[in-house]
């Protein structure tokens, strides 16, 4: 297989893994302030306590792999998104320390401040991921030298902002379903309502986003003409979305979670598929776009990295599965909890 395509697919796999896994723990963060009791807030944080760090490693590895496999795409995107990415970093920092610090002190103001920081940081991080994806879909003013030529305001157009809001809604739904799986009793009953509400908001935004994409970005469907079977993913995506309320209604939250994970996977796939073979589309001149060929590392490096991936990914998957297995079941507060 063409190494460049292999790496483009692997980047997609890493991004999908990240979006599904960190997606639910970001979602828990977004919903955090909707419970009021201290014990319930602790339950929410501890439901992701042992897992969030490993989930975030998918992002770290995505970043490292992008740097290694497509250094030009990494350099152009990261320097172009300078300030939004700085705020993303601050959000990720505050998320991590909010969980770590929150329950270490009893004072009300202390816990409340970290609760707010946790929700704001989770929401902001999700929103900025969405904005970044929206900009990638829309294309950026990239010059012949592969450098970003716009300013901060170029990044905050209506379409990227819409994708940002859509991302928050998606993760809020995904996180709510996850929480339903991890909680019990009265709290779980309330979270049952969250699932419906967040699904409703998600559905409205999904329809709206789909229309906006088709209207404002006709290029998004170009690749479907050449590879018609990709429509299958669109159909599966719709089926997965339709299965979420069905599974909730039938009282099968596990299926609802798998369906929302599948929805996220399908959306990530469609994002990558419509970009291919571009990594970053130039809105100035298509010839300036960064593709999986002109933005890539040498064949030698891509080949070495394939070995790293082939050797490493089985370990990664087995740790991930083992950890989720060890921490399965309902979240309980114990002496080692946050």
């Amino acid at each position: 297989m063409d190494l460049n395509i292999f790496w483009f697919i692997l980047m997609g796999v890493l991004l999908t893994g990240y979006a599904i896994l960190d997606g639910f723990d970001l979602g828990v963060g977004i919903m955090h302030l909707f419970v009021k009791k201290d014990e319930e807030r602790r339950l929410l944080m501890n439901s992701i306590g042992p897992l969030w760090d490993g989930n975030e490693v998918w992002l770290v590895t995505f970043g490292g792999a992008l740097f290694a496999a497509f250094p030009h795409a990494y350099a152009t995107a990261f320097s172009g998104f300078y300030l939004p990415f700085m705020f993303l970093l601050f959000a990720l920092i505050f998320r991590a320390v909010s969980m770590e610090f929150r329950s270490k002190q009893e004072m009300k103001w202390w816990r409340r401040s970290w609760d707010v920081s946790f929700t704001v940081a989770s929401t902001l991080a999700t929103f900025l991921f969405g904005v970044a994806v929206g900009n990638m879909m829309k294309g950026l003013p990239i010059g012949a030298d592969m450098e970003y030529q716009g300013g901060l305001l170029n990044l905050l157009g209506p379409f990227p902002l819409l994708i940002g809001v859509f991302a928050v809604a998606t993760f809020a739904m995904h996180g709510s379903i996850y929480l339903y799986l991890k909680t019990e009793g009265d709290l779980q009953k309330r979270i049952h309502r969250w699932m419906w509400t967040t699904f409703g908001i998600f559905l409205v935004l999904y329809i709206f986003t789909t229309m906006a994409t088709l209207v404002s970005l006709p290029s998004a469907v170009t690749n479907f003409r050449e590879v018609p079977w990709a429509w299958v993913v669109v159909v599966l995506n719709v089926l997965a979305i339709a299965n979420i309320p069905r599974a909730i209604y039938l009282g099968k939250p596990g299926y609802a979670f798998i369906s929302s994970a599948a929805t996220i996977a399908a959306l990530t796939f469609l994002f990558g598929f419509s970009l291919f073979p571009n990594m970053i589309v130039s809105s100035l001149d298509p010839a300036y776009s960064l593709t999986i060929y002109n933005a890539a590392s040498s064949q030698k490096t891509l080949g070495i990295m394939r070995w790293i991936a082939v050797l490493g990914m089985p370990f990664v998957l087995s740790y991930t599965i083992a950890i989720y297995w060890i921490f399965r079941g309902k979240t309980q507060l114990g002496k080692f909890s946050y």
Binding site: T61, A68, A69, T301, I308, F315, Y319, T320
Partner: peptide, 19 residues
């Protein structure tokens, strides 16, 4: 440096951070 520097960085993610 991406071609050279990137691969240890990616290896760090795959082999060390996940572990």
């Amino acid at each position: 440096v991406g071609d050279v520097f990137g691969s240890p960085l990616a290896a760090e993610g795959v082999f060390a951070f996940f572990l």
